[in-house]
Amino acid sequence: MVNLIWLFLLLTGIIVAGMSGRIEVVTESALHAAQTGVKTAFEIIGVMTLWLGLLKLAEKSGLVKVIAKLVRPIAVILFPSIPKNSPALGAIIMNLSANILGLGNAATPFGLKAMSQLQDMNPNKEEASDAMITFLALNTSCITLIPAMVISLRVTAGSANPVEIVSTTILATTCGTVVAVFLDRFIRKRYYRKKVKR
């Protein structure tokens, strides 16, 4: 599916630009975007290095296991395929907490660590595992308690009540998360039923 979406974005872009007589924006934006990609990757090296160092400390000291143990009751329901006390659970929780607190750039290193630990227990290295999909469903639909960026935009624009959107944001994001978790379950069950039939 991601292949199709990628192709759709690229080809539609080129066709529309060509038909509206502005084909040169394709070259311009493609080269510019490629550079942005490299810049983004380089910009996160520092943050990545810092948090992966701290995460190693948290792992070696057993702190990650303590966290994993705390959330076990929920984790068992959400991630039935992850063994109890797996360090992956600790990394997942740290990623989601960082997201919830709005610590965007600390979330990515934790998340990538969680992915690599999930990949270690994934039998098929090219295909996403159940736990990975559930994790990303939670991650992408995730609750942010403080949409700090939006609040500051509203302050700048002179809002009478810049934080009034916090409650609506939490409600809307909860709807998204609930749908993501249930849809993931539903599709997964169907997937295995089909597999068994084959």
Binding site: M1, V2, I5, L118, Q119, E126, M132, T140, A180, D184
Partner: peptide, 26 residues
């Protein structure tokens, strides 16, 4: 793309569907 890319996953299975469904719902 970034999370799956970092561990070399090529088949996303239903991750895109679930992610987009959550977006549309929100």
């Amino acid at each position: 793309t970034v999370y799956f890319g970092s561990v070399g996953i090529k088949k996303f299975r239903h991750a895109v569907t679930v992610g987009l469904a959550a977006d549309i719902t929100s």
